[in-house]
């Protein structure tokens, strides 16, 4: 009988990936893994502001946060991957202004193929039903 359980759980690998990725640290991203689901958090910081006059978060910061969330979600469930997937493309839809407060995000994998996968992610602040920004992305999940 062989024990297939890896020494480090996949959740820990996701935490480790975020912990050692300088850019994830730069935006202050954290995440909480619950089985095959994950919620990401980007706590508010002054440096994330894009428009001083209206004190709104920079679209690029939210976009990067969503990209990392989608990437981490794929890494979490695609267990054959030894490293986070490479992005192919992404479309970011800016629905509402991001205010000067914490932002949360979740990603759903719409289709997991053998070489590529399609992922949707959304970021919200006060109400989950009022997303600030959504993302549609494709990643390479094929052989290394």
């Amino acid at each position: 009988m062989t024990d297939d359980t890896p020494l480090i759980s996949r959740a820990d690998q996701v935490y480790a990936f975020l912990g050692r990725t300088p850019f994830a640290q730069e935006i202050g991203m954290r995440c909480e893994v619950m089985g095959d689901e994950m919620t990401a958090i980007m706590p508010f910081q002054d440096k994330l502001i894009g428009n001083i006059a209206i004190k709104a978060l920079h679209g690029g910061a939210i976009g990067a946060f969503l990209e990392l969330t989608a990437m981490a979600q794929v890494f979490l469930v695609a267990e054959h991957l030894t490293r986070p997937p490479r992005p192919i493309n992404m479309t970011i839809d800016y629905l509402r202004q991001g205010h000067a407060k914490d932002t949360y995000a979740r990603a759903t994998i719409t289709k997991m193929g053998r070489r590529m996968c399609s992922v949707q992610a959304e970021a919200w602040q006060d109400e989950r039903s009022k997303p600030v920004t959504t993302l549609l992305a494709h990643f390479m999940v094929g052989g290394e």
Binding site: R20, T21, P22, F23, Q25, E26, I27, H58, G59, G60, A61, G63, A64, F65, E67, L68, R83, P84, P87, M90, I92
Partner: peptide, 19 residues
């Protein structure tokens, strides 16, 4: 250094290009 997305290669994160 702080914009790196892949610590193994030192390549800048895609999110930096987005911004």
């Amino acid at each position: 250094e702080r914009l790196v997305g892949d610590p193994d290669t030192g390549v800048i994160h895609g999110g930096v290009l987005t911004a």
